[in-house]
């Protein structure tokens, strides 16, 4: 297994970033490294998010009114296709089920969510130690504007981000990697939010099969629509920072499983929630 072995790590990074996906339709990517031409990476993630408290517009914590709570169950299919040495095609399709319940009742929206299609271009590296890429995707809502299906903004959008990734040895079988990304997302509707997004990830390959990773990410979403809705996927003006920890194991060269937990740690106009997810990742 001499020269490649970036692949498992890319897979791992993919998992780490991916498991931070939430009901807000964030998407994953695999750091700055491209996928080998002709190879296809597929990830299937199941996640469960729950928030029983919220941050108001000033960031003050409180309980939902009427003992309310919000939960979101999601199934995310994500794929990266190596098109050339420097270009990777990205496709993601989520299926989401959001439920808000309180003492007055319960409402659920279930549907395919915001799909994304785009690509990542590998730009450059510094001595093959730190890699830079730019990634762009188009956001396409796969749901209708109905009370039972509306799981997002129902708006086309674009996402553009810069990604930097590096890795290093920690001695023995241990190695580490890190990814930093920053970007923006614009939804096309009149008051569709503009969002600044960033993620920092650090992972340790404990041995040839196991890894532990930590990441933090933040979203600053701005819109003229300042309203807070119990269904968090409808909020447009908010911000939060979340932290996550994940553990992964590679069962074969091509197949890995990741379990992750993430927690919102600070925010504004959004729920205080936590998320558990399980990802199955395979390379074909």
């Amino acid at each position: 297994m001499p020269t490649k072995n970036i692949n498992p790590i890319v897979v791992k990074i993919l998992a780490i970033v991916f498991v931070s996906c939430t009901f807000l339709g964030q998407q994953a990517h695999a750091g700055a490294w491209p996928v080998r031409p002709g190879k296809v990476l597929v990830s299937l993630t199941g996640s469960y998010f729950k928030a029983s408290r919220l941050w108001d517009r000033k960031g003050k914590s409180s309980a939902y009114a009427d003992s309310g709570s919000f939960n979101s169950k999601g199934l995310y299919l994500y794929s990266e296709i190596g098109a050339s040495r420097v270009f990777t095609v990205i496709v993601s399709v989520p299926y989401v089920s959001n439920t808000y319940s309180d003492t007055r009742g319960k409402s659920t929206q279930s549907s395919f969510g915001d799909a994304e299609v785009g690509g990542r271009v590998y730009l450059a590296n510094i001595n093959f130690k730190f890699y830079f890429a730019i990634q762009g995707t188009v956001i396409v809502p796969l749901y209708s504007d109905s009370p039972t299906q509306n799981v997002g903004y129902q708006s086309l959008g674009t996402d553009l981000r810069l990604v930097g990734s590096g890795s290093g040895s920690l001695g023995g079988d241990k190695s580490c990697y890190y990814t930093i990304e920053i970007g923006g997302r614009q939804y096309a509707t009149g008051n569709g939010p503009f969002q600044l997004r960033s993620t920092v990830s650090y992972g340790i390959n404990l041995d040839k099969k196991d890894q532990l990773a930590f990441s933090g990410s933040g979203v600053l979403s701005q819109s003229s629509d300042k309203a807070f809705r119990g269904n968090l996927s409808q909020n447009k003006d908010f911000s939060y920072v979340q932290a996550s920890i994940s553990a992964g194991r590679s069962f074969t060269k091509n197949f890995s499983v990741f379990l992750a937990y993430n927690q919102f740690v600070v925010g504004r106009n959004t729920g205080i929630g936590s998320n558990v997810s399980l990802s199955l990742i395979n390379k074909f």
């Binding site: 072995n5 498992p8 190695s175």
Partner: peptide
């Protein structure tokens, strides 16, 4: 980016 296999490989090659 590297794991033990890669290290062993280039050490062997070296």
């Amino acid at each position: 980016m590297y794991n033990g296999y890669l290290k062993i490989f280039y050490q062997t090659l070296f």
